[in-house]
Design a protein around this nucleic acid. Sequence first.
DNA 1: CCTACCGATCGGTAGG
DNA 2: CCTACCGATCGGTAGG
Lengths: 226, 226
Amino acid sequence: MPMDMTAEHTLPALQKRPRGRPRKSDEDRGDGNRRGELLRSAARLFRRKGFGGTSTRDIAAATGMRSGSPFYHFESKQALLYAVMDEGMRSAISKQAAAMQQAACPGAGSSRGLAPVAQLRALIRNHFDILLGHGNDFIPVMLYEARSITRSQRAALAHLQGEYEAPWIPVLESLREGGLLKADVKIARLLIFGALNWSVQWFDRRKGASLDELTEQAMQLFTGTS
Amino acid sequence: MPMDMTAEHTLPALQKRPRGRPRKSDEDRGDGNRRGELLRSAARLFRRKGFGGTSTRDIAAATGMRSGSPFYHFESKQALLYAVMDEGMRSAISKQAAAMQQAACPGAGSSRGLAPVAQLRALIRNHFDILLGHGNDFIPVMLYEARSITRSQRAALAHLQGEYEAPWIPVLESLREGGLLKADVKIARLLIFGALNWSVQWFDRRKGASLDELTEQAMQLFTGTS
DNA sequence: CCTACCGATCGGTAGG
DNA sequence: CCTACCGATCGGTAGG
């Protein structure tokens, strides 16, 4: 094992007393509560004012902390931004998996031709929910602040994005084969994600169409069916 | 003439020596050159690092100026951002008008049914050019930094955006009536602009499809024709 | 997680 | 457009 760490290995395992600042051993239990609050505040502010336009003091104040305290939970402002994006992607992936499971079951016995349409509808509807459901600032931040993380952080996120996009591909291919999708699948996917992602710029929950109506219109636009 | 300026008027016209700061009377001639260079540098940096992540010193350095000099041309950093967006929109509007004029002439005598398809193609092709042509950072900045300008500045830009979008509406309505566009025109317009605008996030001039191919695929996706 | 603090950088200005 | 500068704010840290 190449990792030869500190002498702590040799110490008795009972409650190693942290000198200086206590180390957090697990990230999402115990006081992971405050960490979660920080993430939510940060997501909201990063979205509203941008990464460069938000100070760590803003975030601390919005969470009810003093200016230095965010750095107990996160190494740096950038690490906080990355954590927002990472959390957003993981949550999106698990929501999408749940949505697909639901969409698969009811139509299990029905006609084989209808399946890809229903699946695309489920994917789009879920995507709108992730983008536009209230309190969902994580994904918008990820979509619009990618330039503020490092190249390797971006690579890690790209991996998660690939995971998220994976279920879309066979669905789009089925539609293409069935003649309902007229464009090249790879480019169609990019254009479709663009159309959906852009909705965070104009969608107003308080007026206009519902997410269901939006989904129907998107289905009409891309496949001519609904 | 309401402009009653300084006593400089009474001095001999040879090389009026500016005390304090010389006033610029016109904005885009004479040394408007440097102003334009500032705009281009600012657009590039705002796009790459965001408004909050770019310092006025960065912009000055990229233009070959000292740190205080941008403020000779612009009241504030925000005014510089707004000028980038305003210039971007005006340029886009005039480019679009030229593209539409070209698209209208050749098909003047041809079949009436083909026109809206050709017009949408011209609009989309031109839009890709505005977004993805090299050196065109102005519109991407406008698309992704809107939150960093004031409400009234946003309102002024919205007016220009309305002007830009105007020619799209009758074209989309024709296509809808002709059965080639299946979605509601208002929502379709928003989704289509999203699909196109998002391309600034993934399009790579050095590889992949050309703008012509991209346009064809977009036409296929939205109208099923090309 | 708070207190107290540091060095760096920032937007902007006076004056020429 | 440069020089020289200011007050404010910023990300981050030591120490408890």
